[in-house]
Design a protein around this nucleic acid. Sequence first.
DNA 1: AATATTTTTGACCATTTGGTTAAATTTCGC
DNA 2: GCGAAATTTAACCAAATGGTCAAAAATATT
Lengths: 205, 205
Amino acid sequence: MSKIQKDKTTEERILAAAKKIFVQQGMAGARMQDIADEAGINKALLHYYFKNKEQLFEVIFMEAAGRLFPRINEIFLSDQPLFEKIERFCSEYISIVLENPYLPLFVLNEINRDPDYFLGKVWKGKNVPQPEKFLAQIEKEVAKGTIRRISPLNLLMNLISMTIFPFVAKPMFQKNLGLDEWQFRATMEQRKKEIPKFIIDSIKK
Amino acid sequence: MSKIQKDKTTEERILAAAKKIFVQQGMAGARMQDIADEAGINKALLHYYFKNKEQLFEVIFMEAAGRLFPRINEIFLSDQPLFEKIERFCSEYISIVLENPYLPLFVLNEINRDPDYFLGKVWKGKNVPQPEKFLAQIEKEVAKGTIRRISPLNLLMNLISMTIFPFVAKPMFQKNLGLDEWQFRATMEQRKKEIPKFIIDSIKK
DNA sequence: AATATTTTTGACCATTTGGTTAAATTTCGC
DNA sequence: GCGAAATTTAACCAAATGGTCAAAAATATT
């Protein structure tokens, strides 16, 4: 039981509750009863708004995935210069995830359970990922001689890893490095600039 | 149902089955019946060897965590020079995880569900993590002028992130970048040397 | 071979859990 | 205010699930 917002509509309260429970417990661990309790309503009413657990889950998952994946695609598709792209990605991505630190682990976890199903849902339609452009851009910079010779694939992995992983391992980092909530946030704020600097220092010629 | 090893003892078959199911489905998603089936035995026999789900899970979890955490602690505690440490960590860690690519996500996920409980189990006794030494070592190198000024915390996060995250996001990377199993492995083999090079290029003065 | 011990099984139980139903209550259109 | 529609609830149901038990089968001990 937590604070039940009286101003929100019932459906909004259900979605907020479902998000909290699903993100915390995963699809398998989440209980419809817990979601109902969290929303301050009856379980039957839950099924009045969402016909079953799977459908409710899919709404939550797609909303979560929808916040994370389009941004990754942006760095593939935009027309900016490489270094600007890297800076923008880190800065914007960290901002988004700081508001929902547990989303990445949640999404990666469900993808892991059934990659084809979930990635099929996420990347449907014209939204398929096209990393070719970004990878080609890196190769072009290598050819121009502005950056050292590096495998584009590795550079991409490095960028995404350094940006996202600290959130995935948040409890571990916090506990092992003794960071409270505030210190963790501050560190991630720093990293908006530290990561691009780290990368550029490594590859710039 | 999969191949049931006749040469292994029943207990070993149970542990292998439990590992497969738990790592794939997580604690909440795993079914005792599925573990029994996978081991080619009766559910009652499962409880004859392990008194309940939680106990069986803990055996699996501790075995998994025991493979991942001590290595991280090593980079904190060993006496090697910084660059060697970084190289050794990447190389050894990737080797270990290549044999069980799904362990990191599994462990991080369960830690996330109950950080204090699980991290308490993992780091019990004299095995508590002591990052101070590693962080101090970085600061010393900065002072000596061998590497540029960088926040030790950020460097540590970068190292661990680049090493582990590709495994956590394995299905996503594979699907979105079109890597089959073999190509993924080859990429990670490359990264044993690419990551240290990437880091050292960034911080060496 | 006979007996004691360990391992394995099928049948069963209690609880949890997702989901339904019919009735009650509230809200809305008039 | 009144009937209809939408919202909310309590009570239930069936299937799934973790766990038990007594008997059977296999193995070890003498």
